[in-house]
């Protein structure tokens, strides 16, 4: 039953986690206890939890062979909506934000699954439009959370057993996602669609419905990320989620999900997100290094990940040919 353990296979499958460990090791050497302290590690993970939430949705979408560029836009609109509704109480702010996320995700799903617009184009369009909506809500300015929503602060800053709430949300979402991807019909259908959509149709998989739900989930995750950001910063900010469109894809690809779909792991994307967090953290700690290095380093790590994937893929092809 159990496959034989092979070193090569182990490294190929867990490359992103190994990279994460290596980076953590480097950071430990450079920063010592400052890096390894519980508070720093929690801080590090908390910082990337919102982005990580969005990346989980994007990961599913990419496994299905689709794209979602609009996650940043959705986060921005939801952050603003939550702030906009905060005068009516915490419940209104949260519910309003979630409902908005649901609608925006459903619109993406409608465009892709029903109107059959290429996902890249469809979500490029909505990304631009959503960013516009976020700016429109308060004329491009931030909007403070009203004092009527005292409980709202918990979402971004609350602790349960000393663990920040966003981390718990991220972990719960990641755990659920792994289960859905690997042990449910819905999850396997997502892989099937990404592997060969035409076959999936012929096999009787409900492709349109599956895709519709994918975009709704993605919207909800990104939107909730945006709401937690608003809570964290105590304000709705129209620039929330800037760069998420690309950073999520980068994390997903670094996690070993193939951009053409059909193959990938949710846990890989989590590793991709944490790599992002470690680099951010390292640069913050080094003080005198410009934070712009973060992007440059991430870019190169992404490229190396893709190059390694390509080499592995080619080798596999050769093996299956011979």
């Amino acid at each position: 039953m159990k496959k034989k353990w092979s070193g090569k296979n182990f490294f190929a499958k867990n490359g992103s986690w190994i990279a994460l460990l290596l980076l953590a090791l480097i950071s430990t050497i450079l920063n010592g206890k400052n890096f390894l302290s519980v508070s720093n590690l929690l801080n590090l993970v908390r910082q990337v939890s919102m982005l990580g939430l969005a990346a989980i949705g994007v990961n599913f979408i990419i496994i299905a062979g689709c794209k979602d560029l609009s996650v940043g836009g959705i986060a921005a609109v939801c952050s603003m909506m939550a702030a906009f509704l905060s005068p009516y109480g915490t419940a209104a702010a949260v519910a309003g934000g979630i409902l908005t996320a649901l609608l925006l995700g459903a619109l993406n799903g409608f465009l892709v699954a029903v109107l059959k617009i290429l996902p890249f184009i469809a979500t490029l369009g909505t990304m631009i439009a959503y960013n516009g909506i976020a700016l429109l809500i308060h004329d491009g300015k931030s909007l403070a959370i009203s004092e009527n929503s005292a409980g709202f602060a918990f979402l971004g800053r609350g602790l349960i057993l000393n663990i920040p709430f966003p981390i718990l949300v991220f972990a719960a979402a990641a755990g659920t996602a792994v289960f859905v991807a690997e042990h449910t019909r819905y999850g396997r259908a997502v892989y099937a669609i990404g592997g060969n959509e035409e076959s999936a149709v012929m096999m009787g998989i409900q492709v349109a419905r599956t895709k519709m739900l994918l975009y709704i989930f993605s919207g909800l995750l990104a939107g909730f990320g945006g709401i937690m950001m608003a809570s964290r910063l105590n304000a709705g900010i129209p620039f929330t989620g800037t760069g998420w469109d690309m950073y999520t894809i980068a994390a997903v690809v670094m996690g070993g999900t193939l951009i053409r779909g059909g193959e990938g792991k949710i846990s890989g994307a989590a590793a991709g997100i944490l790599i992002w967090g470690v680099i951010q953290n390292m640069i913050n700690m080094m003080g005198d290094v410009s934070t712009y290095w973060q992007q440059i380093i991430m870019g190169f790590i992404l490229l190396s990940a893709v190059i390694i994937q390509n080499i592995a893929e080619r080798r596999r092809e050769v093996i299956s040919e011979g």
Partner: peptide
């Protein structure tokens, strides 16, 4: 042949109607 290339043989036989 309409199969999903990256899934296992067993999954291809069962996808969409997996026993729960």
């Amino acid at each position: 042949i309409n199969l999903i290339p990256y899934l296992s043989v067993a999954e291809n036989i069962y996808i969409g109607k997996e026993p729960i």
